[in-house]
Structures are given as C-alpha cells and as structure tokens.
C-alpha cells in the first residue's frame, strides 16, 4: 500500500508541476500574443470569455502573480480552459472532449500492441541469441531511427496515393454519423489502420531492442542457470524465469517513455489528419491558438500520468519485492 500511495503522491506532484509550468509559460514569454488575438476578435468575444482568457494568460497586470495563480486554478477547477480561436467560439474543453476519445483509442491500442508484440519478439531474440534473429537487429535499429511522421508520409505515399487501398486522411467516412454501430466502427477501423500500423512499426523496434538486452542480461543470472540445472522445460525457463524477470525493467521503461511515445503519435495524427488531439494541436499551432495548445498539453500530460499509474499497478502486481511491507 505504501508503494501505491507513494506513486499517487508523485503523480499529484507531477500534475501540479505541469499545471504550474503551463501557468508560467505565457507569463514568462515576451510580448502578449494572446492580447493580440483578443484584439483581432474584438467584438466577437463576450465579457466572460475575455475574463477567462485574462485569468488563463495573465493579461490583467493589476493583479499580483499569486492572485493570478489562484485565479488560474479557479478556472481549471471549473473546467474552463478558455475559448478556442481555431474553432471560434467553441470552448477548448469541448474541442478536447470531442477529439480525446480518438486519440485514446488509436494511441492506447497501438502503443499496447507494439509493447506486447515488441516484448514478445525481444524475449525470443534475446533467448535465442546468435540465431538468425540477430541479423534483424540492424534493420530494427534503422526503423527505430525513422521519425514517426516520416514513416506516416511514406505509408500515405504508398498505400493511399500510389496504391489507394487505404484513405489518406480522417478518422471515419465523412458521410457517416458517429455512433456505436457496425458501419461507423468498421469505417473507423479502416481509417485507423494505416496510422495504427505506422505507430506500431515505429514504436516496436525500441521494445524489441530493450527486451532483447534485458533477456540477455537476465539469462546469465544465477537463477536462470539453476532453472536449467533443475531440468525444467525450456518454456518454463524462458518465460517463468528469464522473461518474467526481464520484463520488470521494461515495464518501468514503458511508463517512463510513454510521454515520448505519445509525442510521436501526435505527429502521426497530424500527418493523417486524424481527428484526435494531436491533429488539434497541429491546427492550433498553425492558427496560433494558444488556449487550445495549452489545453491540449494539460490533457496529454494528465493522460500520460494516468497511464503511468496504470503501468505502476501492473509492476506492483508482477514484482513481489515492491509489495513487501504492506
């Protein structure tokens, strides 16, 4: 229990830090880009919208930094992230809540698949070291060095432009209305296939290499030798002794590199014009839509923290040593 509480405390502190960074960035930067935006939309903004933007971006120079900070938190607790200028006058929270499910499903699913698949391949190639699989390593390294978005570009060029098998953009057929029915879900799967494969392909190499190295390291541990000496079946030695221990650091690595992976997948969304928050972020950057950008950053950070907590729970379940003093 102590472990869980510690981790939760850590994530609360991290969330606080992220929000505070978010609060400070516009205040530390030179110039007032948001002021300029408000000026541009003069007349279309009502007073309450202006007030919330002022609170979020610290435009009210009369108030002290501390007052601004408390105002900011007040806004967040009301779920008010300001108005989006790209989708004027939709509130940022609404834009995000529409796009978040797309990202959660696409990124969540593909990240999980690539982790499981990559770990599995890593287990085998680490265990059968010196086999033909070793010759795949340079290829894997090469693929893992390709930026996600470029692989997406190539995927589009090949499978959407040259051989138009898959759609090049969008999350579903625009003639359909989002609903939980067969035509919509199959259309969503069809649209999600190419971006999904792109993410899996770029992310998997890292897991293969990481797991392979851990397998090689763990294979020379004493307890693996004991397991061999005991005459256990190869499967038992490989999975229950070697892989079972090798996966532990990989899971903490998974948690820690989630933030990085999510960054990469956001780009895939941009390239595929996938209706998730990555694409929204891309549009927000183009339109200098600061409220939307900041809102997206907050949501992404909070999601990553939640996923981290989940990974910690899995770790807790797998490693008895973290469970010791309850």
């Amino acid at each position: 229990m102590k472990f869980v509480l510690q981790r939760i405390l850590f994530y609360v502190v991290t969330a606080w830090a992220a929000i505070t960074i978010n609060f400070l960035i516009p205040r530390l930067m030179p110039g007032d880009p948001v002021q300029a935006l408000i000026a541009r939309f003069q007349g279309q903004l009502d007073t309450s919208a202006i007030a919330s933007l002022k609170a979020l971006f610290g435009l009210d120079k009369e108030r002290s930094l501390w007052q601004q900070y408390t105002d900011y938190w007040g806004q967040l607790f009301q779920g008010d992230l300001g108005l989006s200028f790209t989708f004027f006058p939709t509130p940022v929270s609404e834009v995000i809540s529409q796009s978040l499910p797309w990202t959660l499903v696409l990124v969540g699913l593909t990240t999980l698949i690539s982790f499981l698949l990559g770990t599995g391949i890593g287990v085998y190639s680490g265990w059968r070291r010196g086999s033909w699989m070793d010759s795949l390593l340079p290829v894997t390294t090469f693929i893992s060095s390709i930026p996600y978005f470029w692989l997406g570009l190539i995927a589009i060029a090949l499978f959407a432009v040259k051989w138009p098998i898959f759609p090049a953009a969008g999350g579903y057929d625009s003639s359909l209305v989002p609903a939980f029915d067969v035509p919509f879900i199959s259309s969503a799967l069809y649209h999600g296939f190419l971006p999904g494969i792109t993410i899996i392909l770029s992310a998997i190499a890292g897991w293969i290499l990481g797991m392979r190295n851990m397998m090689v390291t763990v294979s020379s541990e004493d307890y693996v030798m004991v397991a061999q000496a005991k005459g256990l079946s190869e499967r038992r030695v490989m999975f229950s002794y070697a892989a079972r221990n090798a996966i532990l650091p990989n899971i903490s690595g998974f948690a820690l590199s989630l933030g990085f992976i999510v960054g990469g997948t956001l780009l895939v969304e941009m390239v595929f014009s996938y209706p998730g928050i990555g694409y929204q972020l891309f549009q927000a950057v183009g339109a200098k839509d600061y409220p939307l950008m900041q809102g997206v950053f907050l949501i992404i950070t909070l999601s990553v923290l939640a996923a981290n907590l989940l990974a910690d729970m899995v770790y807790l379940f797998l490693d008895p040593r973290t469970r010791k003093e309850a």
Binding site: E221, D222, Y223, Y241, R244, N245
Partner: peptide
Amino acid sequence: FQGAMNSLNPVH
C-alpha cells in the same frame, strides 16, 4: 550453487 542470494528466482 554459489551465492544463494541470486540462485532463487526473485519473483516466485
């Protein structure tokens, strides 16, 4: 084995 500390699988 030498070194019983590492001879037992820590997760079982």
